[in-house]
């Protein structure tokens, strides 16, 4: 497979995952805001921090209101973290990698792009927002399902899986860091609501139901963290992402050079237990996961994507 095409397929998958996660998180965030009493709510700024988009946002010299933040995250063409931008980038990558993808993938990505272009701007207000975000999630899911059921298990499939999971890894780490920091920073807030906030994020990861079945109906912050970090069977947990990336890249040429950060990260996971550690130590662990995602991308770029002369 051509290095350039591999790179485009990888980024197509990353941007699709980013669009879906942004939609899930923006939705959860909006829902939680409605449930929390005044004084205990999370500031809108947290949403920007999750995506590392705060600096870009403040460049625009706006204050972080519900409308301005959601417009920035849903519809702003120039924001590399917005749903609008992610979908366009996914489409442009798919367009130049069409020959290695099933024909329907291109058609669905194209439709997703047309949908986003038409509705993102109109969906910032609460009334249309939830429907729009759910549509984005459903359409991205349809694409993932399509690729899972029709894509040959070739290099293209490996890079699709890799792209999805590395993005998920990075975003999960960001969510954990930003949300726990935001919870701690609220002065005089009632800690009774912390569980509610974490429950919302379990839901964003499609993990709330499983959590309730295997841990219990009350969401407790530390055990929620353990669950989304360590549970090897949860497709959105950090350990699951690490394991699956490792498995899908193993057969590739010079993969050992690429996947070393995974082995290091997995090793540290054995000793991870949110209940037994300070918030600072937990943050160190999670930041380690984030830098693992970054190193994976850099290693892949150097080994497989960047042309190296003979």
């Amino acid at each position: 497979m051509l290095s350039r095409v591999a790179e485009r397929v990888f980024w197509m998958a990353r941007y699709l995952e980013r669009a879906e996660s942004t939609a899930r998180i923006a939705n959860t965030f909006s829902q939680i805001r409605m449930d929390l009493p005044r004084g205990s709510e999370l500031p809108w700024q947290t949403l920007l921090e999750i995506f590392g988009a705060d600096a870009n946002f403040y460049d625009l010299k706006r204050s972080a209101s519900e409308h301005s933040v959601l417009h920035f995250m849903l519809a702003r063409v120039g924001n590399p973290n917005s749903i609008r931008f992610s979908v366009t980038a996914a489409r442009e990558n798919a367009r130049t990698a069409r020959e290695v993808l099933p024909e329907e993938v291109w058609e669905l990505v194209n439709e997703l792009h047309l949908f986003t272009k038409e509705f993102a701007e109109k969906s910032v207000a609460r009334r249309n927002r939830f429907d729009f975000l759910m549509q984005i999630v459903t359409r991205c899911q349809a694409l993932s399902g399509l690729m899972m059921t029709t894509q040959t298990r070739d290099h293209a499939y490996r890079f699709i899986t890799f792209g999805h999971l590395v993005e998920r890894l990075d975003l999960n780490a960001r969510v954990i860091l930003a949300v726990s920091a935001a919870i701690d920073s609220r002065e005089g807030a009632n800690p009774a609501f912390d569980g509610l906030i974490w429950a919302g994020f379990l839901e964003a990861l499609s993990a709330l139901g499983t959590y309730k079945r295997s841990v219990g109906p009350m969401v407790e912050p530390d055990s929620a963290l353990n669950f989304v970090i360590r549970n090897p069977d949860l497709p959105r947990s950090i350990v699951y992402c690490l394991n699956t990336i490792r498995m899908s890249l193993k057969s590739m040429k010079s993969s050992e050079k690429v996947i070393t950060p995974i082995d290091q990260s997995l090793k540290s996971m054995y000793t991870f237990d949110a209940e037994e550690m300070s918030v600072e130590t937990m943050h160190k662990f999670v930041s380690g996961v984030q830098s693992c995602a970054e190193r994976l991308t850099n290693n892949a770029t150097n080994n497989w994507f960047l042309p190296t002369s003979l």
Partner: peptide, 18 residues
Amino acid sequence: ADLFVGDENVVYMHTVDG
């Protein structure tokens, strides 16, 4: 950019397998 000319004037393409 996918192609380059290497030793003995042979043309190669960059792939993930080299």
